[in-house]
Design a protein around this nucleic acid. Structure first.
Lengths: 135, 135
DNA sequence: TCAGTAATGTTATTACATAACGATCATGAC
DNA sequence: GTCATGATCGTTATGTAATAACATTACTGA
């Protein structure tokens, strides 16, 4: 089911994202980070990100054009059925990820009301985290 | 409260988006559409979009890098307190907009659980609309 | 061995968005 | 009126995000 083996570039990108730990990174930031490892072109990063996304090991934050290592608790990314939720702190830039069943149910209900067949949903909440609020 | 008067460019962009009626448009598509009206540079469109966004007359669809005329039922964009939801058909590209209080409540609850202060939230659901499903 | 496929590399290009600066036009205080 | 102020508008250049197109390498199995 895991499409193929994970490649060198995928590993590099995934590690770089995990090192960031809660901080989203743009593709070009990742490229800069990984230049010492031999990466040279954006496409190498984008291909890795695409592959990792398909495995649900990373997520794209649409409102930031940035990427985040998946911190889902549930194994290796069975995100089917519940919507992903991201709490993005506009102060410090950190992002917390949730997989919220209740929100997923609400999304399904909304879709059903309008005969819409959902495939994937994500909610991005912008605001201020506790630390920044305390400041 | 409405910051200032609405300008010529804002009107042009807003009309163009309303003509699209459910179909999101990118900034550069709008620019092409409005060239006959005298618009020449991306910045003219982006400025208008920013101003219209602040008035809650248009929304940005993050996952598409595109913009949509607001179809909220509630006057002129008092979206405070409920999360916006967009159902995006990947088949035909049409988008339906909702302002769902229940989903907004869930977002608030999630935020409260983690001491996060939400400012704005949007959910984008990708899937297939009834028409495309029927084919 | 060699055919097939997945992964990788490289150059060029397209798409999306903003910086920086200057010109124009309305409006109200005097 | 006129002149200062601030909002709007215009243009060039640039920055940032993502993909197209094509060539190459490497793994895998009959």
């Amino acid at each position: 089911m895991a499409k193929t083996k994970i490649g060198r570039n995928e590993n590099l990108v995934l590690e770089a994202l995990r090192d960031a730990s809660g901080a989203p990174r743009t593709a070009y930031q990742l490229l800069e980070t990984l230049r010492p490892e031999g990466l040279k072109a954006p496409l190498q990063v984008y291909r890795a990100l695409k592959s990792l996304s398909e495995r649900h090991l990373v997520h794209r934050l649409e409102s930031l054009n940035a990427y985040l290592a998946c911190s889902c608790t549930h194994g290796e990314g069975e995100e089917d059925g519940h919507a992903l939720v991201f709490a993005i702190c506009d102060g410090c830039g950190t992002v917390r990820e949730f997989a919220d069943p209740a929100l997923g149910e609400r999304v399904k209900a909304l879709a059903a009301e309008t005969a819409f067949t959902p495939r994937f949903a994500a909610t991005e909440i912008h605001g201020t985290c506790a630390d920044c609020r305390a400041g």
